[in-house]
Amino acid sequence: MIQEPFAIGSSHIHRLDPRLKILFATAYSFIVALSNRFPALFAALMLSLLLIGLARLNVWKAAKRMALVNGLILFFWLVIPLTFEGTALFHLGPLSVTREGVLLCARISLKSNAILLIFIALVSTMPITTLGHAMNRLGLPGKLIHLLLLTYRYVFVIDQEYQRLVRAAKIRGFRPETTINTYRTYAYLMGMLFVRASARAERVHHAMVCRGFDGRFYCLRDFSSTRTDWAWSAFMISIILGLVGLEWTRII
């Protein structure tokens, strides 16, 4: 089932101006992605963890999400050190583990975790509707926001429809296997999903037109920045300057 486990909360981070959170998360993510020095990357990971702590999220749930991503990173650890050119650290039979490969993997792991943690701390801590409205206020194209919000609205409906079709298939004794019959069942199931979705889209569109939909989607929500928001922006800007300093001035 699709859920938004982090969206609701009462921490300071949850109450911040969503526009501020989106802007900061974007700037921070890009700086981390472009950094290469270990002091900056370690600092970034610590800062991301700090913000996760400040958002008072369910640590267990956040850890489960991170485990998934780190599974992929494990794949890099298995392949890159063995295939990378460079000075050998030690040998495993005919293969050699290179220093450059290990360093690269370490960088990727730090960056990836820092970026995803900040994303959970700042972006996943708002409902998607708020995200859409804030993105609209930040000047993203109205059509794109409209599409995002409608898609989000219908993901849950379509997911339920899918669950219903799967239940019906199971009751008829369907068991997924590697056979053409299984693939056909899935293909038809999806086809049915699209047919129903498209019929629903038509009904929704007619209903919208009946209610005076003129092609524009209005975001009525306005965001205002409070004094706390200004304090947080100062804090976030200093974080960014600090990271930039660590990466490009080589203090440490």
Partner: peptide, 11 residues
């Protein structure tokens, strides 16, 4: 066409 694309992209 946005409702249609939105619902299709949800599916």
């Amino acid at each position: 066409r946005i409702p249609q694309i939105g619902i299709l992209s949800a599916s």
